[in-house]
Simulated assay, not measured.
Amino acid sequence: MERATTSGHLPVLYREVLDGLAVRAAGRYLDGTFGRGGHARGVLEQLGPDGRLLVMDKDPEAIEVARRDFGGDPRVSIFHGSFAQMGQWDAAAGGLDGVLLDLGVSSPQLDEAGRGFSFGKDGPLDMRMDPTSGESAAEWLARAGEQEIADVLWTLGEERHSRRIARAIVERRAATPLTGTAQLAELIASVVPRGKPGSDRGRINPATRSFQAIRIHINRELDDLHAGLEAALQCLKPGGRLAVISFHSLEDRIAKQFINRHAKAPPANRRMPVEPDFVPVLRAIGGATRAGDEETASNPRARSAVLRVAEKLPAGGAA
């Protein structure tokens, strides 16, 4: 989720990401979520003539920007698709010195009403990161059962009023199709009680959690994250770095657990007669890194950003 770079602003946790990747001039790096190229541009500036930058994105508009801004650079290769597919890209499968995954929705996507991500701007209820494929939010809400909708809102949005919202959606669509973001946001607000002033519920729009959950579901974001982390581990060379920026507790939990699972031996099990040998594959580089006060003051969207970095170990687990 990065800020626009055309105005001179930097993407979220810009310096922390570049430090975490420890970019080498002749290295090969993959930005799995190009967005508008803020982090990619920073990596490219540190690469020499023998370095390589691979960029991926689901969003065709992001790919257009990548081709416009970087297409003429022989060091850059561009792939339209999810980072979950990096292992299928020959350029990545050959070995990487660093992988960056900047999760969630980008600022340009949020700011463009026509993409349907924002409840603050009326637009078509789409929410697809790749509008050329898959099912839109409007199409899913038109066919999904009440229990399925409630489960998505609860599981992916941690929405306490998931059942009430799901019931309202099913009742409303029976009379009027839900096709716009403002229409859905107003419906949610009509059935979700406002929180007390100063509380978390009082500070955020009642539609926030539901929109987040629907977007994650429509784009299969958590499935892609699981697959992308495994693919990154396979593509990284020994000594290569993995950097993951998350904006949601579920995403951060997945990234944290993935790193820990490959970096730390599992707890001892007294029922096992012989504990299997554990050979670490990753080494965590620091802990969770968050944006500082200066960055969050200039970019409120950075408040929820969490960066985790890990390094792939040589065979045998030696650091």
Score class of each variant (00 low, 15 high):
residue 312 K to S: 14
residue 31 D to A: 12
residue 185 A to K: 06
residue 244 V to Q: 02
residue 13 L to Y: 02
residue 21 L to W: 01
residue 245 I to P: 06
residue 18 L to Y: 04
residue 206 P to C: 04
residue 249 S to K: 13
residue 238 P to H: 04
residue 23 V to T: 09
residue 3 R to E: 09
residue 119 F to W: 05
residue 211 F to C: 11
residue 161 H to Y: 13
residue 23 V to L: 12
residue 250 L to E: 10
residue 214 I to T: 00
residue 286 G to E: 07
residue 305 A to S: 07
residue 88 Q to H: 15
residue 299 N to V: 03
residue 193 P to T: 05
residue 213 A to I: 05
residue 105 V to M: 02
residue 233 L to V: 09
residue 93 A to T: 05
residue 39 H to C: 09
residue 175 A to F: 15
residue 46 Q to D: 11
residue 155 T to R: 15
residue 285 I to G: 04
residue 198 G to F: 12
residue 166 A to Y: 00
residue 152 V to P: 02
residue 211 F to E: 07
residue 295 E to G: 06
residue 286 G to N: 08
residue 67 R to K: 10
residue 163 R to C: 11
residue 117 F to K: 02
residue 206 P to K: 00
residue 64 E to I: 08
residue 151 D to Y: 15
residue 27 G to K: 04
residue 48 G to W: 03
residue 226 H to Y: 14
residue 310 A to Y: 00
residue 224 D to L: 10
residue 155 T to P: 13
residue 66 A to R: 03
residue 6 T to H: 12
residue 236 L to H: 02
residue 252 D to M: 15
residue 70 F to Q: 02
residue 149 I to H: 03
residue 214 I to M: 03
residue 284 A to H: 09
residue 287 G to S: 05
residue 319 A to P: 01
residue 205 N to K: 04
residue 315 A to N: 11
residue 281 V to Q: 13
residue 205 N to M: 11
residue 288 A to Y: 11
residue 47 L to G: 03
residue 232 A to G: 02
residue 104 G to L: 01
residue 242 L to P: 09
residue 311 E to Y: 01
